[in-house]
Nucleic acid binder design. Structure first.
Lengths: 133, 133, 133, 133
DNA sequence: GTGGTCTAGACCACG
DNA sequence: GTGGTCTAGACCACC
């Protein structure tokens, strides 16, 4: 697949969000990898380029890439661009603690949704929509 | 409904979690309120009591209660126990931005699950389980 | 003028208010005195009666009366009811620091009103309404 | 507009006041925002700087900023200075309960003024002065 | 550099 | 008894 920076600004920051910027960046890369938009070996935007595109400090982008590296999702190489880890592969089956973590995230979603006035039915519908395809 | 401190230790801290303690406390109270385990007017544990139960500083519990107060979920009054806000009511229908936020949370769940090796089918099953009843 | 407890519940508490209960009580008595509804020598409701009417602790009412006593507005006598201080009289002219305090209160009103979307014109109109008669 | 810390000590504490320090700080920021001295996006003094200027603990300033954040007046983000909320805008028209609250504040002013010997005329003059321009 | 979390502990204010 | 304010200081996280 094409490198991510052919179409710049695929990564965007939400200034209002409470999430730290480096996390927002990392999360979006994770999503690209999870959905296959980025595949093993694909190059990530250069640190400098992305930092300037987003108007953030270089260290912020670096922090995002390092976080992804510690998850073995990307490979940061000195002198050349970071790439999606060539041997990245989704585990055949999830570790039990990962299932537990996803379950707990779903509980957070449930709590959020109920408190904000959604019905369980509406939430289930939204889940079917987002979690399908 | 019975007050929350009839059965102590309903609130627990997960030392492993990256989430700050005061947030963990607040999140659990939110969940109790969302599920109806705690209802408007119900008393929360006193800050001192809960702090000693959890082995944390009083100020940590206070921070949790204040966060909840700023969300209009609990009412903290000088001299008497914090209670679930007497006029707390789930909105009849969610605000559009709240739906958007829940959707984005679901996306995070999806990304997490896929990266960790869950199939969409497994995730849908988990979602049906957690988001039902 | 008639004693205040001829018509019970002239004093009311706003449970939602951030102001402490004893202050709410004191403030309402001050208003009765300021407007002449209560005059020097008039009896205040008995501590027990008012406490039971309002559903608060006796000490709360006592705190209110003591606050008023320290302002020389009421006289609390052992064994008999509190009364509006028989020699209470509004000063002929305000002390300079009192004017300063009123001015600072007006600034607070101004800030509140502007932040909440009132125009200065609307605020002036409201002020003319409340501060007249 | 210039950031608030160009001219230090624009915020001052009144040791005499019964109001807690963090509230005094918050109130002054509110006033700057209400009058336009601080505008959306403007930086607030750093918590450390302001704490040292005022001779108070860092946590005291933090408490003030957090109070303002919960009112959506400022935006505090980890790692960068607190700023006036970029989307802060006075509501086009005040909510009815806000008008009610302002009215009740005006009643407090009225009571205070009368008890301390001001005439209604004097008070009206003071109000015209403070609430104009 | 910035703010965030947490602690221990003092002392105050409200009911 | 309850919560509120404030301190000093440690250590962490973000930019």
């Amino acid at each position: 697949m094409a490198d991510l920076d052919r179409e710049p600004a695929l990564i965007r920051l939400n200034e209002e969000s409470a999430a730290p910027k480096y996390m927002q960046i990392a999360e979006q890369v994770r999503e690209f990898v999870a959905t296959g938009k980025l595949r093993p070996g694909d190059q990530l935007p250069s640190v400098r380029q992305l930092a300037s595109d987003l108007g953030v400090n270089v260290n912020t982008v670096l922090a995002a890439y390092r976080a992804l590296e510690s998850e073995a999702i990307v490979l940061v190489r000195h002198g050349s661009r970071a790439i999606v880890h060539p041997r990245f592969k989704r585990p055949a089956r999830p570790a039990p603690e990962d299932v537990a973590q996803v379950r707990s995230l779903l509980w957070r979603v449930r709590t959020e949704a109920l408190l904000r006035g959604m019905t369980l039915e509406a939430l289930q519908g939204l889940a079917r929509e987002v979690l399908s395809e």
